[in-house]
């Protein structure tokens, strides 16, 4: 009897740990009325969605709106122009947990939550970059949309400023295995990081780099880059 009890205890401990969410892979329990990532993915476009996620980054606040890159342990979300005061925007630091209510939408292939409102919750999680290099050029890449991802050994093929001069987005094309891919330094995501802006602006054709960023979509993959390591 004691052996059986011990076994049950051990099993329940394992299950409890699994339920609590391991660092890698295991799903996180959601609050009542909140969708899991799988439910969010399955939700129809234009339907109302409620999600819980952790802020990974956000673009510049403006006019009581902010655009947020967020993730949970199963996937990622992009909140476009979410209603937000300037004070609250300052609190949206990486890792901050928020509950978001809005509508699922798609704009040029980018699946996002629009007309959203949010509230702060307690919890913290910062995603590590997932290497998706092997999915470049494949349909599976879309499964990682909005996630914090990395691409290894990418060769710079072109760098251009949106305006022809510094002061706005920078478009960076990389090639991998003979195929060209379009990346972007999103000016409003980069904020005041002039060092990174200058580094990207000064990339030279032929340089081989590891790249990190958020897997944004615009008529195809168009990662918003946050880190470039020239090899």
């Amino acid at each position: 009897m004691k052996k059986v009890l011990a076994l049950i205890c051990a099993l329940s401990l394992v299950l409890a740990l699994a339920a609590c969410g391991g660092k890698d892979g295991a799903s996180e329990a959601k609050s009542e009325g909140v969708m899991t990532y799988a439910e969010y993915v399955a939700a129809a476009l234009d339907s109302e969605v409620t999600i819980e996620a952790y802020v990974q980054a956000h673009q510049s606040w403006w006019d009581d709106k902010v655009t947020v890159y967020a993730a949970d342990k199963d996937g990622a979300y992009f909140m476009y122009n979410m209603a937000c005061s300037e004070d609250d925007a300052a609190k949206l630091t990486p890792g901050t947990k928020i509950k978001v209510k809005g509508y699922k939408s798609e704009w040029s292939g980018e699946v996002e939550i629009v007309d959203a409102t949010f509230e702060f919750e307690s919890g913290n999680y910062v995603a590590t970059a997932k290497d998706v290099t092997s999915f470049l050029g494949k349909d599976e890449l879309k499964d990682y949309q909005n996630q914090f991802v990395s691409f290894k050994d990418m060769t710079v093929s072109a760098v251009s400023y949106k305006n022809g001069e510094p002061g706005d987005d920078i478009y960076v094309n990389f090639t991998k295995d003979g195929q060209e891919y379009y990346f972007c330094l999103e000016y409003y995501l980069n904020g005041s990081d002039t060092n990174f802006y200058n580094q990207v602006g000064n990339l030279v054709e032929g340089q081989v780099c590891d790249v990190e960023g958020f897997l944004y979509w615009y008529e195809g993959p168009n990662p918003h880059i946050t880190k470039v390591t020239v090899k």
Binding site: W62, K162, N163, G164, E165, G167, D168
Partner: peptide, 12 residues
């Protein structure tokens, strides 16, 4: 010259 791509941004 300071260049914009958006009238709204100039306005702001």
């Amino acid at each position: 010259m300071r260049i914009y791509t958006d009238y709204g941004k100039i306005y702001n």
